Amino acid sequence: MSEVSVALDRLCAVRIPEQDDADLPDELFDRVDDLIDAHGADDVAEMVAKAVEAGQASMRQAVVFLDVAVWSGTDNGSSMKVTLDEWVRRADDRVRLGIALRHEYYPLPTRAEMLPKLAEIARRFPEYRTVCERHTAARPADRPRS
């Protein structure tokens, strides 16, 4: 078993509190760090999505793992955001789309790009309508370029 697989297994074994406002266990932060170290890169999104597909992690766990990975990595989540934005643009995989839409960020670089894409996703995937509407309502207007 590879070092990455072991790190992912250990991360998936961490219990995540059910309540959104509950403190996350310290072990979670250590296991996310271990996965990033084993992977050798900050973008662990694809590995986490595969863990959900394999039944190793729940969707909720995946989102929490990636939210923590943003703060644990060296690039403040910028490499992972590229992956998540691509998943939203493609909108062809329910697991990846669900993770990207529930991650704590605004999908896609601009409101102008986000609005029509999320409207399309809400039509095609009714289970994501509420989260799409939440992002649409919360996203500030794009700043004019100077």
Rank of each mutant, 00 (worst) to 15 (best):
W71F: 13
M1G: 13
A41R: 13
A38S: 06
P140L: 10
V14I: 12
A138K: 09
R90P: 07
K81M: 07
E53Q: 07
A7V: 13
S72N: 04
S79L: 00
S79W: 01
M59V: 02
A141F: 14
Q61E: 07
P140T: 11
Y105D: 06
N76G: 00
E133Q: 10
V63W: 00
T83D: 01
V82Q: 14
M114W: 05
R134T: 14
N76T: 02
M80W: 01
R102H: 15
A138H: 10
R60W: 09
K81C: 00
H103Q: 15
V131I: 07
V64P: 01
L28K: 07
A49Y: 01
P140A: 12
A41G: 15
V64S: 04
V70R: 01
D34Y: 04
A141Y: 12
V14K: 14
A22S: 09
V82T: 13
L118P: 04
A69H: 02
T130W: 12
E127C: 08
D33Y: 06
D20W: 13
H103Y: 15
V14F: 10
R89D: 05
P116T: 05
A69R: 01
Y105E: 09
R96N: 02
V4M: 11
A45Y: 00
L97V: 03
D67Q: 13
E133S: 08
R129G: 04
A62H: 03
M59D: 03
G40W: 01
R60A: 08
Y128F: 14
Y128C: 11
P25K: 05
Q56N: 07
A62L: 04
D37E: 10
A100R: 00
R94I: 11
D23W: 14
D142G: 09
I16M: 06
R123Q: 08
W71Q: 11
Q19R: 13
A91N: 07
P116E: 08
